[in-house]
């Protein structure tokens, strides 16, 4: 039967001769043809890719922004400014800060420049602006919380500013006077002014930590704190707190603030019956606490910052 026949493999055909040729074996015209072929292929790929990308962009734009909306939106003025904040700022502040022209439409707004205007206040930590067609501008801001006050020259007059945990100095809009009165004054800081604002206060993180710890765990002590001085912070690693009774408490930044507060509380209670309040309690000496009753020269309660601030 033919099925059982052995068929030898067919002989090698000319088609098995390899045809690829290295470019250097090609003539000048051959190389030119090869290059143009490659360029054509690349061009075709780019054109196809470009057309596909264009179609995708058009489809996406049509889906996300209906075509007729821009014309309609251009004619409608902004009627509502919607502010969402985690702090105390209000719509009046927002309107004042953005200072939008009258009858401006959403389409004419440059959100990036508006955002920069908000961020320039210092009180705003983060801002997101959203156009809500046809007539609403939504603004969502995250605010800094003040931890201390500082006296500084602000727009030509000396006034109290607030300092946030990250050292940013700002005006402190919308805070009640009672709330501000609970904040201690900062002393011994050098404020450097650039353009329309001050440079952040250095090492403010440590101070903020001490104040937060005191406010949480020893509020009765914190309420007596009037001035927090950073004068010895860099040189001695110490934060000096001057209290209403006139006692100066020295905290060491290398020790645990909670332990130091506990020692202060203990000393404070132990010395409550003393005829005169101590002039100085030094908690920065490690396990030892130095309490000084020696009368000191009259302490000037006016914050040093008033005297030392470079304007």
């Amino acid at each position: 039967m033919s099925k059982d026949l052995h068929i030898a493999p067919t002989a090698r055909s000319w088609r098995e001769i390899p045809q690829p040729v290295k470019p250097r074996a090609m003539s000048r015209e051959g190389k030119w043809r090869r290059m143009t072929s490659v360029l054509r292929a690349m061009g075709a790929t780019l054109v196809v890719g470009g057309v596909a990308w264009g179609l995708w962009e058009v489809t996406r734009t049509l889906q996300e922004t209906p075509r007729k909306m821009p014309e309609a939106a251009r004619a409608v003025a902004i009627k509502q400014l919607e502010l969402r904040t985690d702090g105390v700022l209000d719509n009046a502040w927002l309107a004042r800060t953005l200072a939008l022209p009258k009858a401006v439409s959403l389409m004419e707004l440059d959100l990036q420049s508006l955002r920069l205007r908000l961020m320039a206040s210092g009180q705003v930590n983060a801002a997101t602006l959203t156009k809500n067609f046809p007539d609403t501008l939504k603004v969502q801001v995250g605010e800094r919380s003040p931890v201390a006050r500082v006296m500084a020259n602000w727009r030509g007059e000396s006034r109290a500013l607030v300092v946030a945990r990250d050292g940013v100095v700002f005006e402190g809009v919308g805070y009640g006077a009672a709330m501000l009165a609970t904040l201690p004054w900062l002393d011994g800081v050098k404020l450097t002014r650039t353009a329309d604002h001050y440079q952040p206060v250095e090492n403010m993180g440590l101070v903020a930590e001490l104040l937060a710890r005191a406010r949480l765990d020893a509020e009765h002590l914190y309420q007596t704190w009037q001035v927090v001085s950073l004068a010895r912070l860099e040189s001695d690693g110490a934060i000096e707190v001057r209290t209403k009774p006139g006692t100066t408490v020295v905290f060491g930044v290398n020790g645990d603030f909670l332990q130091q507060l506990a020692k202060l509380d203990y000393q404070w209670e132990a010395l409550a019956t003393a005829p005169n309040p101590p002039r100085k309690i030094d908690l920065s000496l490690g396990r030892e606490v130095s309490v000084s009753f020696q009368p000191l020269p009259n302490f000037n309660l006016v914050p040093h910052s008033l005297l030392k601030t470079k304007l």
Binding site: S2, K3, A11, S13
Partner: peptide, 23 residues
């Protein structure tokens, strides 16, 4: 079709000396 394919393959299955190729 199988018969035709077989006879054609058989008729073409002749080896060539080295260095020769079928045109």
């Amino acid at each position: 079709a199988g018969d035709i394919r077989t006879v054609c393959d058989l008729a073409k299955s002749k080896e060539l000396p080295t260095g020769r190729a079928v045109v």
